[in-house]
Design a binder for these strands. Structure first.
Lengths: 211, 211
DNA sequence: GGCTTAAAATAACAGTTGTTGCTTTCTCTG
DNA sequence: CAGAGAAAGCAACAACTGTTATTTTAAGCC
């Protein structure tokens, strides 16, 4: 399995090449040829691994979502209480370069997802998972009394999702308006007012990240 | 000024035709020919009114933003106090068909805006205006004592923008997850906890809309 | 060393895209 | 009624798109 003067590629590598093209030139410039060129190869690489361009894009989005979920779960290890919610937010908010690229890619796909059922379902899945995580954590916090019992975990989870998605969208369009510390200010303000959260115990979460 | 068996068109009409095509088939399918066909005309209509396709898209986005701002300001007339903020949110959140279409269009453009400076600036302007409106209202409410003096209007305005943008983005992807009443539940929950807002005086705002 | 086969290169296709230049049609004006 | 100008039709272009079919390359195995 090989090639004349190059190497062989996996589906993941093709998808990551697609990511780079999208980040650099935009989704509308991410043609099959452009992606192949990014790998220093020809279109044969793409057509061999994917039956469609649609399949390639779906796979690329799927891997992106999987990576996000993976990072989120990894960051949760070893933290307890309200800090767990802060950790989730730390991987969701556009803070480090990885999260920023993730947001850029994610937003790039949203437009297409509106007229593509499969892509939209992929987007929906990520939102549902995020919502589930928040709701689960909130219920656990209510059980231990760290969060008022009279709040609705469902509504509160929707709020947290909306808040972080709004910050992510805002950051993509106006990076200067949402620097990391302001992102935390917004989020902490909410946690304090709504969930009666005290000040953060340790430093800003997300410093010890997985991967 | 005319044509053989049809009529003549304005720039606005061309832009609105572009909106319809984007809403129906997606931005990537909104070719010059498709837009002309939507008007039951030929490409000559488009090329006459716009030097570029880029200029057409920019104009279409500009008009969309202008319409949103116009609706927002119109809805503010005659309301006072915290209800003014609720009114702004009522035109911002995806509740009626007009707001929903606005959000779909807006999100459709975001992906392109990431690799197009002019489009991005247009997006930024809308976000800045919205932020300014919120901040202005909050400061006024602080002056009258309707809102605690120790909150930061800037941060709070950013929060409100993020919250409504997050709901808008979430709605576009998962309409079922964000029905109008849940949108209000989220927003009211925030207003109550953070701004010490009492229950709404009248019914759901936004019923008496302009236009 | 020949055979098989995975992996990629290559070439060609039909369709679509934005753009340009030219022509036609109509309305207004004198 | 003639001419000017506005508005749109129309045709053609080169570039680019996704897709398919075919060919070449190299590795693994007996």
């Amino acid at each position: 399995m090989a090639r004349v003067a190059g190497r062989t590629f996996t589906r993941e590598e093709v998808a990551e090449a697609a990511w780079r093209v999208i980040l650099r030139d935009g989704l509308h410039k991410a043609s099959v040829r452009a992606i192949a060129k990014e790998l220093d190869a020809t279109t044969g690489v793409v057509t061999y691994h994917f039956k469609d361009k649609a399949e390639l894009l779906l796979f690329a989005l799927d891997r992106l979502g999987a990576a996000i979920i993976r990072n989120m779960d990894a960051s949760l290890q070893g933290s307890t209480g309200l800090d767990r919610i802060r950790r989730i937010l730390a991987t969701t908010l556009p803070q480090g370069p990885r999260e920023i690229s993730g947001w850029r890619l994610w937003i790039s796909f949203v437009g297409l997802a509106m007229s593509n059922k499969r892509l939209r379902e992929e987007h929906q899945r990520r939102l549902e998972i995020l919502n589930d995580r928040f709701a689960t954590e909130l219920k656990a916090l209510q059980a231990t009394g760290d969060v008022p019992a009279d709040i609705d975990p469902g509504v509160e989870a929707d709020t947290l999702v909306a808040l972080s998605d709004g910050i992510g969208l805002g950051f993509v369009l106006r990076p200067k308006a949402y620097p990391p510390d302001k992102q935390w200010e917004i989020v902490e303000g909410y946690l304090r007012a709504r969930l009666g959260a005290g000040p953060r115990v340790s430093g800003r979460p997300g410093s010890g990240r997985g991967r």
